[in-house]
């Protein structure tokens, strides 16, 4: 009988206090909507930033006279170096083809030269682009007095990671990432505070009712359950409405646009069903907890 009674009480209270309940529901709706738009934006931004970061590589240029044994030893060494994600071999011919397809005007110069000046390369992709210098340091030894570079492995002609480019990429992307992350954190905090506050107001309006219930001998949980159920209902309805609106926006605005803009179709964006689940669950949890916790103050009679 008890759960049924609590449910009945909760819905009766919702009906009799329609205005504050509606206000709480609207708050949930709006914050969920904003979050629902913002979460994919944050993810698309960080996804793009990560994509840019993946362009940071270490090029290990090989000497023209490198033999097969040195080649395999070097590959072995590179793949076991910490922070290395993958190692690609680019042959002399491949490098030449790449150059000529990218810059057709170099064709004449190469012909004039009569031979292929480009070295074969091991292209090393780091796991964490921020720590790329560690890979370079494991291959290059710099003499502190003369500043002369020597290499730890035989057959290496040079090691370059385009230092200035790397630095620019790293600082720009990390700025973007921290900015979006802190904005997301602020927004989530503001949403929680807003929802909790609206619910607090709607309960505050009924504190005399709680007082009377206590006088009649109701236990704290007997009073609390209907309020918590009410919070769940309000959060759920606000969340469902927000998700419906998001779906409409996605269907009419985002999907047609994503065909044109790469950023919107970014690969790492959260899937829509997952987004729905996260939003609904957090709406319900925040409003139920808000109701339950706010009551604590009025239950101390």
């Amino acid at each position: 009988m008890r759960p049924g009674f609590f449910l009945k009480e909760a819905f009766r209270a919702l009906k009799r206090n329609a205005a504050p309940s509606l206000a709480a529901m609207l708050t949930v709706l709006l914050t969920a909507l904003v979050l629902g738009v913002f979460i994919p934006v944050v993810q698309a931004t960080t996804g793009t930033a990560n994509k840019v970061r993946s362009r940071v590589v270490v090029n290990v240029y090989l000497a023209d006279n490198i033999n097969q044994q040195q080649l395999t030893a070097l590959r072995q060494r590179l793949t076991t170096t910490p922070n290395v994600k993958s190692v690609d071999y680019v042959s002399k011919q491949q490098a030449l083809n790449d150059l000529q397809s990218q810059r057709p005007d170099t064709k004449g110069a190469i012909q004039l030269l009569g031979r292929n000046p480009l070295p074969a390369t091991y292209r090393v992709v780091p796991k964490d682009p921020g720590q790329v210098q560690g890979i370079v340091n494991s291959l290059v030894r710099v003499d502190p007095t003369s500043g002369k570079r020597t290499f730890t492995m035989a057959g290496v002609a040079d090691v370059r990671n385009r230092e200035s480019d790397t630095k620019k990429i790293l600082s720009a992307t990390s700025l973007v990432k921290t900015l979006t992350a802190s904005m997301a954190a602020l927004l989530i905090l503001a949403s929680i505070a807003l929802i909790a506050n609206t619910i607090r107001l709607s309960i505050f309006a009924r504190r005399r009712e709680v007082e009377v219930m206590k006088l009649v001998g109701a236990t704290n949980w007997f009073i609390r359950w209907p309020f918590v159920i009410e919070g769940v209902v309000v959060g759920f309805m606000g969340g469902v409405l927000a998700v419906l609106l998001l779906w409409v926006i996605k269907d009419t605005l985002i999907d047609p646009l994503s065909a044109k803009f790469a950023l919107i179709a970014a690969p790492n964006t959260i899937q829509f069903p997952a987004l729905i689940a996260v939003l609904l669950a957090s709406c319900v949890a925040v409003s139920a907890a808000g109701s339950g916790l706010t009551l604590r103050r009025f239950l101390r009679v």
Binding site: N17, E209, E211, V212, V216, G217, N220
Partner: peptide, 20 residues
């Protein structure tokens, strides 16, 4: 305390009824 209060009836000047 709630169980104590169930054994005490109370009547107030301002009735303290649940308005809705």
């Amino acid at each position: 305390v709630p169980y104590l209060r169930r054994n005490i009836g109370v009547v107030f000047q301002d009735y303290k009824l649940l308005p809705n």
